[in-house]
Structures are given as C-alpha cells and as structure tokens.
C-alpha cells in the first residue's frame, strides 16, 4: 500500500473521536480505582468500628493526607509519562520528598520513645504483617485498569510509566485502606504504608515493562 493511500484513510478518520485527553482518562481510572478499593474494603476487610471517632482526630487525616499525596504524585508522574518523551520528574520529586519526610518523622517518633520495647511496638503496631500486603491487594484493580488505559496512550518509558501507574494506584489504595486500618502512629505508617505503596509501584514497573508497548 502506498503511504499516500494510508494517509487518505487516516484523514477520512479525522472526525473520529481522538479519544479523551490523558488527564480525563486518568481521572476516570482514579475514580473507578477508589471505588473498587472501597468495595473490597467493605466486602473483605470491613470498615474500622471507630471510624466516626477517628475522623474527628488528626492522625486519621495525616494518614489520608500522606497516602493521598503519594497517589497525587503518581498521577502527576503518569500524566506526563503517558505522553511521548515525558519524564514525570515533578511527580517523582514530590513522591521522594513525601517518603523522605514521612520516614524521617517515623524514625524520630520511634527513636524518642521511652524504651526499646515501646519502639518495637511502634514499628509493629497490631497489623504490620498484613498492612503492606492488604494495600497492594486493594491497589490491584486500579493498577490493572490504569495499565490498560496507559497502554492506549503513548508512553515511551514503559518501566517508569508502569511504576507511576503503580504509585498512583498504591496511593489511592492506601488512602481507602485508612477506612479499615486502626493503626495510629507515624512510625507504623512510614514503614508499612510506604512499603505497600512502593510495592505497588514496583509491581507496576515489572508489568509495565512488557505491557506498555505500542
């Protein structure tokens, strides 16, 4: 086929919807992802019993703020990385700063505790062995949906783009997880919440490597 003929066919398709902008599609991914995580929490984990009371305290909002901002950083990164030659630098900088800040605050809380046993309690909380795993599971539907959506865009760095989708999904998943998880120390959040979100990003990078080719 001659290229001119192909161009004719492409031009005849000019009026077809060019598709929603990446921004709109990613916002939809975020909304559906949050919804699926919420359904998972309600059907599988249940809401924390003292949710109303917790919502009047500051720790609940600090957790939500931290994980929500991590998700936002993921969105900012993938909004650029879903386009050719995008680097997502601003998103990565935001995520790095958030992680560093939270880990620092968590370390300070643990190191200034009364004795080593108390520090260990801070680190382990009541659910250290399931927290990161649960967050990753809550993020899975959104990760899959996000990778599929970004595959329809034009990422030129598949590993980084996959990681950004994972960060986006992990942040949203962890935020919804706050509705279930009663842990209330910065040390705990800085370790296990962060690990869950970073795990989701790692999984995204791994899958993105082959799933995000076009």
């Amino acid at each position: 086929m001659r290229t001119d003929d192909l161009i004719d066919a492409l031009a005849s398709d000019a009026a077809s919807a060019s598709g929603a902008t990446p921004r709109r599609r990613l916002a939809l991914v975020g909304g559906l992802g949050a919804l699926s995580a919420l359904l998972l929490v309600m059907s599988w984990l249940h809401l924390r019993h003292d949710l109303m009371q917790a919502m009047s305290g500051s720790m609940f909002w600090m957790k939500v703020g931290y994980t929500g901002l991590l998700g936002l950083a993921g969105y900012v990164a993938i909004e650029r990385l879903a386009r050719p030659a995008g680097s997502g630098r601003r998103g990565w900088t935001l995520a790095g700063a958030l992680l560093a800040l939270c880990l620092l605050a968590g370390a300070i809380q643990a190191l200034t505790s009364a004795d080593p046993r108390e520090a260990l309690t801070l680190v382990r909380g009541h659910s250290w062995n399931v927290c990161s795993r649960n967050i990753m599971i809550l993020s899975l539907p959104m990760l899959a949906l996000g990778l599929w959506a970004v595959r329809g865009m034009a990422p030129t760095r598949p590993v980084l783009a996959g990681a950004a989708v994972g960060l986006f999904a992990g942040g949203v998943g962890a935020t919804v997880y706050c509705l279930h998880c009663p842990e209330h120390t910065i040390t705990f959040v800085s370790l296990w919440y962060s690990l869950g979100v970073v795990g989701a990003a790692g999984l995204g990078a791994l899958v993105g490597r082959w799933a995000l080719r076009w």
Binding site: T3, L6, I7, L10, D13, S18, G19, A20, T21, P22, A82, R83, P84, A85, M153, A154, T156, W214
Partner: peptide
C-alpha cells in the same frame, strides 16, 4: 503515521507538535 493518528490525543497542544511527533518516531 498510524501511531500519530491513533495516539494524537496524547499531544498536549501547549507543547511543540514537532517535538511530540519526533518522540513518537524515535520510539
């Protein structure tokens, strides 16, 4: 050309079109 057509919604019109098309070609 097919990719340019099908992926044209990822061009941010605030940016250079040539730079975008070049990145697609390079990829």
């Amino acid at each position: 050309l097919l990719a340019v057509h099908l992926k044209r919604s990822t061009w941010d019109s605030a940016q250079s079109f040539t730079a975008w098309a070049h990145a697609v070609a390079r990829y």
